[in-house]
Design a protein around this nucleic acid. Structure first.
Lengths: 207, 207
DNA sequence: AGAGTTAGTGATTGGCCAATAACTTAGCCA
DNA sequence: TGGCTAAGTTATTGGCCAATCACTAACTCT
């Protein structure tokens, strides 16, 4: 297997493991085991643990950005908000990306508290990129963008806390397309069916 | 100093340290040092690290709940949303509680991933309590409550990422009372002045 | 005075973990 | 055939950290 392919599968594994354990709580050993490779070999592919984490974080945010962009393809400006909201809610079916996001946020906070601004810089850059691309897709309305992200972050938190799919706190997302009082159609969009339960599993190691 | 007083100051110190380092990233040694007490003594006051963390987490959420309740005291139902939003934004002047919240969320996710549901149960219970009390204060409108929490979580994330106070991503919170299109007064509330910079410091150890 | 309790410390231990160094194996190509 | 490179391993080290144990100093009550 080529180094580039390995790097790729290491990033996949790192996303899974870091999402579950966080930066400090994940051993490079665990990631290596998931890839099926020896632990020291990771340090051939990545300078150190932090760089590996950053690679996983970056990838995760890129994938979310891509998912949002894809969701609005071919949609009118009026439909964009709901399409993106729907797409974001669909991430709940496999909350890995949502959890990793949260882990990244706190990892940045911790790093900054220790005087390390490197990760922070990189993550903030990516985050603003994501913000701007959503902003554009939503028709460049400042308040609407903020609202979209606000509800997105609420989803992240509820997912992190592991509220079961049928808990009342999820209620608001069943009744409305994520943006309660938003835009055009006054009639309710036909029951935007919730994706299957956001339950936690621990199967399928990725080669 | 009585054990109860000690316990109290340990919780204060734990809040600060866990907010910065997270569960895994904070050593009991660091907490003990901040209190000015030996590390083993912490284990007289708390069964183990997790219980100490839980105590800090619980306390933090209680304080936020109290701050929200206080903010709406004497306010009419119409003013409640803005008052609470303002109060929550004021937490940015000392983001410790916001950061700890985030650390708690991911700690729950990590614990659950390892099969430990104890912390999760406790935190979810507290969270729902907070939700319900805000729900009540806001006049028991489901969507409004969700919106309030959504913007709150966005604030948490932006604070964690350490965006400086004048960054554009904060923009939406300057123009509006947190709830953009909300409620009564059509005229803008007179420039809800932002609290001083959410910069990170590392001073004042609490005895 | 002296027994009991409360608040606290010093020393240690066993386990984990990031990172390095040194070695190995397999293909390739001339 | 033999040297080069790329992919990978085993062994190890130095550091950190939660938790336990055994000990001590002060205060209180009778």
């Amino acid at each position: 297997m080529s180094a580039e392919e390995r790097r790729e599968s290491v990033i996949r594994a790192a996303i899974t493991e870091f999402a579950r354990g966080g930066y400090k709580g994940t051993s490079t050993e665990a990631i290596a085991r998931r890839v099926g490779v020896s632990q020291p070999y990771l340090f051939r592919l990545f300078k150190n643990k932090q760089e590996l984490f950053l690679a996983a974080a970056t990838r995760c945010m890129e994938e979310i950005q891509r998912a949002m962009a894809e969701a609005v393809r071919g949609k009118s400006a009026d439909e964009a908000h709901m399409a993106m909201a729907e797409a974001y809610k669909n991430l709940l079916s496999d909350p890995e990306k949502l959890l990793l996001q949260m882990q990244v946020y706190v990892a940045v906070a911790s790093a900054e508290a220790e005087g390390d601004h490197e990760v922070g810089e990189a993550v903030r850059r990516k985050w603003v990129e994501l913000w701007d691309s959503a902003h554009l897709a939503l028709g460049a309305d400042e308040g609407e963008t903020a609202e979209f992200f606000a509800y997105g972050m609420l989803i992240n938190v509820l997912a992190s806390l592991g509220f079961s799919a049928d808990h009342r706190v999820w209620g608001c997302f069943n009744l409305m397309p994520m943006a309660p009082e938003r835009s055009g159609s006054p009639e309710r969009p036909g029951t935007p069916e919730r994706p299957e339960a956001p339950g936690r599993d621990s199967s399928n190691p990725d080669a």
